[in-house]
Design a protein around this nucleic acid. Structure first.
Length: 474
DNA sequence: TGGCAATACG
DNA sequence: CGTA
DNA sequence: GCCA
């Protein structure tokens, strides 16, 4: 029996029941692009979520646009046909039956679909003006806190352009516009003394210099070459069972079947961890791999370009931090926020094509423990919006979902126990696992992305469309 | 009607 | 504050 | 915008 039978689905459940193809059948790509632009304007003008430590507010507008775009991608009916058959009002009503769309966003979607823009938000953002709220008032300040507002909603195009530079965040772009009157990348390039003040060092200098190249889509030929080179290089390393290392595309390369401006590669091994112990201490496969790739001239070195490596030694404290009894027993007001989780070793850097000499962003992620592979795959395949939806769903079930495992939050009223339905297929008795506070769900129940999605669907196949990564472009 | 909006690391 |  |  369906675990959700007898009650209405939550908005998050409705979303996860959908498929999000890269290109849908109903001609909504211009609408999706407009909603993406609105999200980017909101992020660039307000700062990303939690960007201001003094004012911990969610960027609700950006979140709404991201969700609205996902809803449009997941629509199983045609806006065009609905507008013909039911008219504007009928279509708005139908949109309001979709998750996360109220009257305001439904109306906006119809306006953008019919006219290509939205007069009170998108058109104003594009002219560098502050948008209007649903009552027609100018939304001059982020977070609606007029008295301590430091972030005007004007100059959207300048802020979007500046924050697209690697190493320049939304908050830095906002300061450049309003404190230094810098309104484009070209203007920033003409002011080396201001660039120096940003303290980005050689990484920022390099990002600015090669910005256009780094924004270009990576040609399929180069993406293939990157994957092949990484795979062959890791398999030739002097590490335990080197031939057992795998390299696969995640990110846009997996959800869309083609790379965007970067290439995301996940490295994993059936038996080995991301690092091993030598007499000198832990050795990271990623470090050795990067050493070779830098030497071969494929990856730009730390002293030359953007280069961010994150490895952790605590992996070899046995057992893992999040499996330690001491952590499960630890109670704190902050819940599991104080937990030190292990993490996958990562590299964010610049690749130089052997074919064209052009530079491209590359992300390498090394799955830290073999059994965490499905969680690493799911998280690093994304998209960002889909990750947020899946993690919201996990919260609904009393679970934490990260890139490593499920952990019981144990923060519900009255009990610290969390019941997890790992299987509720028709014709079988449901299998329910009971977890204590901060106890991880044993990996034997989650051996694939499909298993994770089934747990999120309370043991059913309600979210099975998302098993295919090309349906994950939310 | 008010709390909540994903989660992580250097 | 930067990145995913 | 959703939900207890």
């Amino acid at each position: 029996m369906d675990a959700t039978a007898g009650k209405e689905l939550t908005a998050v459940e409705q979303m996860l029941c959908k498929a999000f193809p890269d290109v849908g059948p109903f001609g909504t790509s211009a609408l999706e692009k407009a909603l993406r632009k609105l999200e980017k304007f909101e992020l660039a003008c307000q700062g990303d979520d939690w960007a201001d430590p003094e004012c911990k507010a969610t960027n609700t507008e950006a979140l709404q646009y991201a969700r609205a775009r996902a809803v449009v991608k997941g629509l199983s009916w045609s806006l065009r046909e609905s507008l013909q058959a039911r008219g504007r009002t009928g279509t708005i009503e139908r949109l309001m039956e979709e998750p996360f769309l109220g009257k305001s966003n439904a109306t906006k979607i119809v306006e953008i679909f019919q006219t290509g823009t939205c007069q009170r938000t998108l058109a104003r953002f594009e002219r560098g003006e502050a948008p209007l709220d649903s009552e027609g008032n100018v939304r001059m300040w982020a977070h609606r806190h007029e008295h301590k507002a430091t972030r005007p909603m004007t100059d959207g195009p300048a802020k979007v352009e500046l924050s697209s530079v690697l190493c320049i965040s939304a908050m830095t772009a906002i300061k450049l516009v309003h404190e230094r009157n810098i309104r484009s990348i070209a203007q920033l390039r003409d002011r080396p003394e201001i660039v120096r003040e940003l303290h980005g060092g050689h990484r920022l200098d390099h990002s600015l210099r090669f910005h256009e190249q780094l924004q270009e889509p990576v040609p399929a030929e180069d993406a293939c070459e990157m994957l092949k080179t990484v795979r062959e290089t890791v398999r030739a390393l002097r590490v335990p069972r080197a031939a057992g290392w795998h390299a696969e595309l995640v990110g846009g390369g997996r959800t869309r079947g083609r790379a965007g401006h970067d290439v995301d590669i996940l490295l994993w091994h059936k038996e080995e961890m991301a690092s091993f112990l030598s007499s000198q201490g832990p050795v990271f496969v990623l470090d050795i791999l990067l050493g070779v790739l830098v030497e071969q001239g494929r990856v730009l070195p730390k002293g030359e370009a953007y280069f961010s490596r994150k490895c952790v030694a605590s992996r070899h404290d046995d057992p893992r931090p999040y499996l330690r009894q001491i952590h499960m027993a630890q109670e704190s007001s902050k819940g599991f926020e104080n937990l030190q989780y292990d993490h996958h070793d990562k590299f964010f850097g610049i690749w130089r094509s052997a074919r064209t000499g052009k530079l491209h962003r590359i992300d390498l992620v090394v799955c830290s423990h073999p059994e965490e592979l499905p969680f690493a795959r799911l998280a690093w395949t994304g998209t960002r919006t889909l990750n947020r939806l899946m993690r919201l769903r996990a919260i609904d079930l009393g679970l934490y979902l990260g890139a490593h495992c499920f952990v019981a939050r144990g923060d519900r009223e009255g009990t610290t126990e969390t019941k997890v339905v790992v299987d509720a297929q028709a014709g079988r008795p449901p299998e329910v696992i009971t977890l204590g506070k901060l106890e991880p769900l044993p990996f034997k129940y989650v051996q694939s992305e499909e298993d994770i999605l089934r747990v999120l669907a309370c043991g059913t196949n309600a979210f099975a469309k998302l098993v295919d990564p090309t349906n994950r472009n939310a």
